[in-house]
Design a protein around this nucleic acid. Structure first.
Length: 532
DNA sequence: CTAGGGTTAG
């Protein structure tokens, strides 16, 4: 290499590596800029460039951008394969764009791209998640008849949704069928069933599993684990009933906020000035800028862009962790916080390393029960142990703030999260809208709805329920009704929660009507029923 | 690239 020669220009491979790495680090905005630079560099993006970018966009909920890249890919005559289609299909389903997803699926078929088991699984799961369980079942049984288009994961998906709807015996039937067809009944499926049983108050049904699942290698270990766990829980508890000393008490909100953004300083202007100076010499100005602004704190383990992965079963330790998470979820969903904490204590003292997932489960129920000091203590411990917080952790922070009537802080937390390279998903938006509305910031809540749709995420039934409720309770009946109409226009199926909320709304409207009547302003028309 | 934790009422 000549030191004095012209700078080496990055080639396509270099660009692809950079784009891929930026996406993997969650810095999709930077990846998109690098992509723009690549297009201006005289190189043509290839299928690797496109696939990495599309995956990055979809994982960070920027599906509109993913679709835009896909469009450019087509315009550039690079053929999309099954993987690319699947990535976008999943993204569309996750942002609740069911219609677009179905259209895209049809395009996939008509373009002659073969749907794989992955594709079918994404569609079936997406139908369930988008409030179309009947359609999901129809597709499932059609594919089953055709054979060879579904796999064990398809069964696992359907079983899990059946359990969520409380239809555990139908789920059991499917598990039996699954095994007969030679698909392995894995820990994920068993976990869904265990949680399903327990939600239905059928704690002892776990043993019945052996009647349905005979060949599973895992089931005996699961049952043995459960037995040992129950025995340990019966042993006298060290702290009596008191679990509160498990985690440090910090209890100060400012500490929590500083956990999110430990070093609020930013030397962006300086960096900009430097890179501006060098722009004309650089073949890759944005990448130079990124390199200059790189700080080791960027890789701080406390904050993870990627969502905390579930424990995969590899060896005894990870089996313990997976089971620990499962049983924490079970205890916590039933409000058995004390048992959950004891279980946590037993396993950590035996040397199990809690992961983000484990902490999130505990955090969730501390927040739900209103033990916020302990919740902040968990965050503290996560920080101390360098256990990364992920989007679910942040969701619990927002929920906790809502609980302590500090919902107005939600906006600034979300801003910080995004500023640090994070992203907002549907659950996060829903939680924040609720927290803001509860804090009386209904305008801000409604604005967040606008922002959500503006970034390409469609609202779901929870979003609409929340907005209708929040606006009703604030006496903004017109607004509430507007959201109801939007919900129906969007083809979003109301659920039982909607019913409860609408009852409330109706009563409020009745009140207003009576008031108007008593003032003698009884107008003959009611504009709320008109379509808008 | 898909499934198992985080969101809404009473």
């Amino acid at each position: 290499m000549k030191a004095k020669g012209p700078r080496l220009e990055p080639n396509l491979c270099t660009y692809n590596i950079v784009v891929g790495a930026l996406c993997a680090a969650g810095k999709v905005g930077d990846a998109l800029i690098a992509y723009e630079e690549l297009k201006g560099s005289g190189h043509e993006p290839d299928r690797f460039t496109y696939q990495n970018l599309i995956l990055g966009c979809c994982k960070s909920y920027r599906v509109d951008e993913g679709m835009r890249v896909f469009q450019e890919m087509e315009n550039n005559c690079v053929n999309a394969d099954t993987l690319t289609y699947n990535t976008l299909l999943d993204g569309l389903m996750k942002v609740r764009k069911l219609t677009e997803a179905c259209r895209f699926f049809e395009k996939m078929i008509s373009d002659g791209v073969k749907a794989s088991c992955y594709s079918n699984n994404i569609i079936i799961d997406g139908l369930f998640r988008n409030g179309r369980p009947a359609a999901a079942f129809v597709l499932f049984s059609q594919l089953k008849k055709k054979g060879q288009f579904i796999d064990g994961i398809t069964y696992s998906i359907v079983v899990s949704h059946l359990c969520k709807e409380g239809r555990v015996f139908e789920a059991l039937g499917l598990v039996k069928e699954m095994e007969e067809k030679g698909f392995a009944v894995d820990l994920i499926t068993i976990t869904s069933l265990l949680i399903g049983f327990h939600k239905n108050g059928n704690w002892n049904s776990a043993e019945k599993l052996v009647r349905y699942v005979r060949d599973s290698v895992l089931l005996p270990s699961v049952l043995r684990w459960k037995e040992n766990m129950e025995a340990s829980l019966k042993a006298p508890q060290d702290r009596g009933k008191d679990y509160t000393s498990l985690f440090p008490h910090i209890g100060r909100l400012s500490d929590v906020i500083s956990l999110i953004d430990p070093a609020p300083e930013n030397t962006n202007e300086e960096v900009d000035a430097v890179s501006d100076l060098e722009n004309e010499w650089s073949s890759s100005p944005h990448l130079d800028k990124l390199a200059k602004s790189f700080k080791s704190s960027d890789s701080s383990p406390f904050f993870s862009i990627r969502r905390g992965q579930r424990v995969q079963i590899k060896g005894v330790k990870s089996f313990d962790n997976a089971m620990l998470n499962t049983y924490l979820a079970i205890f916590l969903s039933n409000g058995k916080l004390s048992e959950a904490c004891k279980l946590f204590e037993i396993f950590t003292s035996l040397g199990s390393e809690p992961v983000s997932y484990t902490y999130n489960s505990l955090l969730s129920s501390f927040v739900k029960k209103g033990y916020l000091n302990d919740a902040w203590g968990i965050l503290q411990e996560m920080g101390d142990k360098k256990c990364p917080a992920d989007i679910a952790t942040f969701n619990m922070i927002i929920q906790g703030l809502g609980k302590m009537d500090k919902g107005e802080l939600a906006t600034s937390i979300l801003d910080r999260l995004v500023k640090n390279g994070g992203y907002l998903d549907i659950v996060m938006y829903n939680t924040a809208i609720h927290a803001l509305g509860k804090a009386g910031k209904v305008d801000e809540a409604n604005k967040l709805f606008q922002k959500m749709t503006g970034t390409g995420i469609n609202p779901d039934v929870v979003t609409f329920n929340t907005l209708i409720e929040v606006n009703s309770k604030a006496g903004r009946l017109e607004e509430a009704y507007k959201f109801l109409r939007k919900m129906l226009a969007a083809g979003c199926m109301p659920n039982h929660v909607t019913d409860t909320i609408l009852d409330f709304l109706e009563k409020e409207m009745e009140k207003v009507k009576l008031q108007k009547a008593s003032f003698g302003h009884n107008k003959a028309e009611h504009n709320a029923d008109d379509t808008g």
